[in-house]
Amino acid sequence: MKLTPHTIQHFYNKLLEAHSPKTVKNTHGILSKAINQAVALAYIPSNPSSLCTLPKGDKPAIHPLDSDTLPHFLSICQSDTLENLFIFAIFTGLRRSEIICLTWDFETSTIYIHRQLQPWREIINGWSPRTGSPEPSPRPPLLWICCGISESGNWKTA
């Protein structure tokens, strides 16, 4: 069987019947890289996967809070420990991963968004995945302030 753009496109179309567009794109990336290696080694003259059409991913619909649900949400937050954090999140539109790693400069009353938490990284504890060593963290993350946690990681007592 000869590897042609048609056979690869047929494979992608069949794959799309059972999997998401993102899975098809990931598969294409792996296959294309392998075929590029075959081209580099002169096994084949060109990469047939480069002529294939990839599916477009469906963007999830965004459902912001409307004028009826926002007051209800804020009233529910009033009894929560993280009330200030929820209010901050709603009015800034930041992602969860950005909010978790926000830092506050008390001297200038400035909030910094300079990194975001990734599921595979330990950024809150100051661990650097690049160097494998702790990174200095001069300011506590906003999450700690909102939760009442001191820089040492202990709960602040009133």
Score class of each variant (00 low, 15 high):
G93T: 01
G93C: 06
Q37V: 08
I87C: 02
I30P: 00
L82N: 05
E107A: 14
E83V: 05
F73A: 06
S49R: 08
L70Q: 02
K59E: 12
Q37K: 11
A89D: 02
P64M: 13
P129N: 08
F106R: 07
L85V: 02
C77K: 00
T110E: 08
A18H: 11
A18Q: 11
L117N: 06
I90Q: 11
C77F: 00
P55A: 12
P119W: 11
P71Y: 08
L117H: 10
L16C: 08
S46D: 09
Q118A: 14
I62L: 14
L41I: 03
I123M: 10
A38H: 04
D58S: 11
I35E: 09
Q78M: 06
D80C: 15
R95S: 07
L82Y: 06
K14L: 15
T69I: 12
F11E: 14
S20R: 10
W120P: 00
H72I: 14
I87M: 05
I111R: 01
F88L: 14
T103S: 07
P48Y: 07
I35F: 08
R121E: 12
L82G: 02
T23S: 04
S32V: 07
W120V: 04
P55Q: 11
Y43R: 09
I113V: 15
F86N: 00
H10G: 03
S49V: 08
S49N: 09
L41G: 06
K22W: 04
H114M: 05
S49P: 00
R115V: 04
F106T: 01
Q116P: 00
H28M: 13
A42W: 09
N125P: 00
E83D: 05
K33T: 13
L70S: 03
I87H: 01
K33E: 04
T23N: 07
T108W: 08
L65K: 02
I44G: 04
K25S: 13
L15A: 03
T110V: 06
Y12M: 11
Y112R: 09
E107Y: 06
D80T: 12
T53Y: 01
H72L: 12
L65F: 07
L15F: 02
R95V: 07
Y43A: 08
V24E: 06
F11V: 08
L70D: 01
I100P: 00
S109T: 12
S20N: 07
K14F: 04
I76H: 01
L85W: 03
S79W: 13
C101M: 14
Q116L: 06
L102I: 03
L41V: 06
F73W: 08
I30L: 15
E98P: 09
E17H: 05
L31P: 03
D80W: 03
I30D: 02
A38C: 11
E83M: 12
A38M: 14
F11A: 12
S97Y: 04
Q118W: 01
H28F: 10
P21W: 05
K59V: 13
A34G: 00
W127P: 04
R95Q: 14
P55R: 09
L65C: 04
T81L: 13
T92F: 06
L117D: 03
T53V: 15
D66Q: 10
V24H: 03
A89R: 03
W104D: 02
N36M: 05
A61I: 12
T69P: 01
T103A: 05
W120K: 10
F86H: 07
I113W: 01
P119F: 10
L51W: 00
I113T: 08
S109Q: 12
K59H: 09
E122P: 00
H28C: 12
